[in-house]
């Protein structure tokens, strides 16, 4: 989606246009879902948090003052929801639920063999990431995976750009050690 189109959708959503907001949900959910994954060890918790994020975002849209700030604002909403959920008593024991992943419907264009390989590689990548401290994981996902700027990542995580830079370097170092 082009940047101009995104701005128009954000503006129309702020006006109360549910169709425009639905388009944002479709467009931005994959990236937001990956960011939420940096807080949890299973996809079920991720999807619950993601759903809450979109509902909260819709309700809170009147507080957004600038269309261009939407993405950062949305990720901050997601971060707060994820942190609340992680801190809630029922989430004190993290679980890695591989059975959950096996139940997710596969796209038709992938053969079962490819899907199995891809899923195991994907889960391996996430499990490597899961060994990182939360702050490093978040910085890595926001900047490297979601391609947000250092400035945007800093705004989302309430920290400075130089801190983000340092966290990414440390995350990469730990990943390199885990991979090799």
């Amino acid at each position: 989606m082009e940047a101009l189109e995104l701005l128009a959708l954000v503006g129309r959503s702020r006006e109360g246009d549910q169709q425009a907001f639905a388009a944002l949900v479709v467009e931005l959910s994959p990236g937001l879902r990956r960011y939420c994954r940096s807080f949890f060890n299973n996809w079920q918790d991720v999807d619950d948090a993601l759903q809450d994020t979109w509902v909260k975002a819709w309700k809170s849209l009147p507080t957004l003052n600038q269309n261009g700030a939407f993405k950062t604002w949305l990720y901050r909403v997601a971060r707060n929801i994820c942190l609340d959920r992680v801190r809630s008593p029922k989430n004190q024991v993290p679980s890695i639920d591989n059975e959950e992943l096996a139940l997710v419907a596969a796209p038709e264009y992938l053969s079962p063999e490819n899907v199995a390989v891809q899923r195991s590689e994907t889960e391996r990548a996430w499990s490597i990431l899961a060994t990182l401290p939360s702050a490093l994981r978040q910085a890595f996902v926001l900047v490297c995976l979601e391609e947000l700027s250092y400035q945007e990542a800093a705004r989302i995580t309430n920290t400075s750009e130089s801190t983000i830079r340092g966290r990414i370097a440390r995350a990469r170092k730990l990943i390199t050690e885990a991979v090799s």
Partner: peptide, 23 residues
């Protein structure tokens, strides 16, 4: 590998649930 997860698993059913709640 990390990117592969979300595009494949973001099911239409999940989207429908979100959009139903918002509507």
């Amino acid at each position: 590998q990390l990117r592969a997860s979300s595009s494949a698993d973001n099911t239409p059913e999940f989207m429908r649930n979100v959009l139903d709640k918002i509507s």
